[in-house]
């Protein structure tokens, strides 16, 4: 197992370099360092001298990939790409283009994101599995058909509708929770109630259908017929056999997204004023802060890769037949 994990970690290095190269190329193909400087320095009274010194200060005065003024390895090392990418592998994210320490900001912002994402995941999981089991229990009946239509309808509605509708109903008409905002510590809970409810509600349609299909696949298997032929009730078969066996894809599906929970949700955080990581990347793209963009893409890639590795490990834990080599 350790050998397998090490192998996966080594495979991750070219992936990370590739992603970083792609982000870098896309960013600087669209914007030259001079344009980025101009955007950061503002619209009024910006001089060419200021642009040059801003770029120099941030190391954007070097060539992008290859420095013709240098020889040997230095021709690659004295470039923006090398300077900006190498330190990422040491988790040195450095300062954003506006001068803030990125690592510090990420540490501060990941907790509010997690505060919404984790309860949303757990509550959503419970509700979605409950609904899915219920529909599977009444499969091929009117209850199942209506349920599926209901799920499709829920999926078809834009997330913005849930957010604005939820804020209008619960905060504006019923005055039960704040429309938006956040507080640290236990006071955060009153701000989290509504976004969590909305995140769960928004995910019911797709989640229930996904779990329903997993349960349906499982219920057709031979062991279920055997259990039924032994005289077990439908609910006993469903909960004691089908549910347990369907847990393997459910668990692995959850494990893969667990690390990504830190990255948060853009729309929910933006509308509810949650100071999470969701809007961090988008804000950085809008303000053309390459330092933040590359750090967040790098972090996202690492989290995704670790999610996949965790999934593989979790397979071995829930299914003894699986061995990692």
């Amino acid at each position: 197992m350790i050998k397998y994990i090490l192998k996966r970690l080594i495979y991750a290095i070219p992936i990370l370099i590739g992603v970083n190269l792609l982000t870098f190329t896309l960013f600087f193909v669209v914007n030259s360092p001079e344009e980025v400087a101009r955007l950061h320095l503002g619209n009024k009274r910006v001089t060419q001298e200021q642009i040059i010194s801003w770029n120099e200060e941030r190391g954007y005065n070097n060539p992008l990939f290859y420095n013709t003024d240098e020889k040997g390895l230095n021709a690659f090392k004295e470039t923006i790409f090398y300077e900006k990418s190498f330190k990422l592998f040491l988790f040195e994210f450095g300062l954003s283009d506006s001068g803030r320490d990125i690592k510090y900001d990420i540490k501060q912002r990941m907790w509010p994101s997690l505060a919404i994402a984790l309860p949303s995941l757990l509550v959503g999981l419970f509700i979605n599995i409950t609904f899915a089991l219920f529909f599977v229990y009444f499969r091929s009946t009117k209850v199942d058909y209506i349920g599926v239509i209901f799920c499709v309808a829920l999926m078809s509605i834009s997330s913005l509708f849930y957010i604005i509708g939820g804020q209008y109903l619960i905060s504006k008409l019923m005055h039960l929770v704040p429309i938006s905002g956040y507080a640290h510590g236990y006071e955060a809970i009153k701000f989290l109630v509504l976004p969590v409810i909305i995140s769960v509600l928004y995910g019911i349609g797709s989640g229930t259908r996904w779990y329903r299909s997993l349960f349906l696949e499982e219920i057709e298997k031979d062991y279920v017929k055997t259990a039924k032929s032994k005289g077990l009730s439908e609910s006993a078969v469903l909960f004691n056999h089908v549910f347990k066996n369907a847990l393997i894809p459910i668990l692995t599906g959850i494990v893969v997204i667990l690390p990504l929970l830190f990255l948060g949700s853009l729309i929910v955080e933006s509308f509810f004023g949650i100071p999470g990581l969701g809007s961090y990347t988008i804000d950085a793209i809008q303000s053309q802060d390459f330092a933040i963009v590359r750090a967040m893409v790098f972090l996202g890639t690492i989290l995704y890769i670790s999610g996949l590795i965790l999934t593989d490990i979790s397979y071995t834990l829930v299914d003894p037949r699986v061995r990692l080599k």
Binding site: I164, Q167, Y168, S171, K172, H175, P178, I179, S180, G181, S270, F271, F272, G273, P275, S279
Partner: peptide, 18 residues
């Protein structure tokens, strides 16, 4: 001063007196 990126919650909170 609270950060309020979206206009809808900002307006509603003003109407609520916040």
């Amino acid at each position: 001063y609270s950060l309020e990126k979206e206009q809808i919650p900002r307006w509603n909170k003003f109407l609520q007196g916040y």
